[in-house]
Amino acid sequence: MEFKLETFLFFFLAVSSIISAIMMITRKSPISSALFLILNFFTVSGLYLLLKAQFIAVIQVLVYMGAIMVLFLFVIMLLNLQDKSKFKEKYSYKKITSLLLSILLFCILSFTLYFGFTGKFKAMSDAAGDLGKAETLGAELFTAFSFPFELASFLLLAAIVGAVVLAKKKFN
């Protein structure tokens, strides 16, 4: 098999995104969890880049790694997490059930992926490569999807109003 930079980058990013995700859920300190989540977002944005979705990759860095992680860190700092003993979980039927269910989900997913898709994957077509570009997105957003686009502004408005109402309640 010839060496391709793209294949190498894909496996590198995929492995590091899995490792960073595992590191994120196993850290004790919530701050280091948040930092590993940033690393995870970065690797995912690299994967978007390999799919030629430049615009989405840049958004992933700007919005998720920048803005949303700031929010996460603020929430962590807002909560008083000094008392570590509250976070120690004991083994319970809940935990065992969730473990069993996630093993089942893993089995189903890997079964479907292995038997359903083996040999069916093809190289990405040129049209698919254009999907994540700002030009394509803008062309679709302002013609066919203009109504959902306007609705998105209502969603943002609702987010502002919700945050203000909740925070005001806390002040008074």
Partner: peptide, 10 residues
């Protein structure tokens, strides 16, 4: 701080 951050995010 949180309010400013969420308004910034929006």
């Amino acid at each position: 701080y949180y309010l400013f951050a969420i308004i910034f995010l929006i």
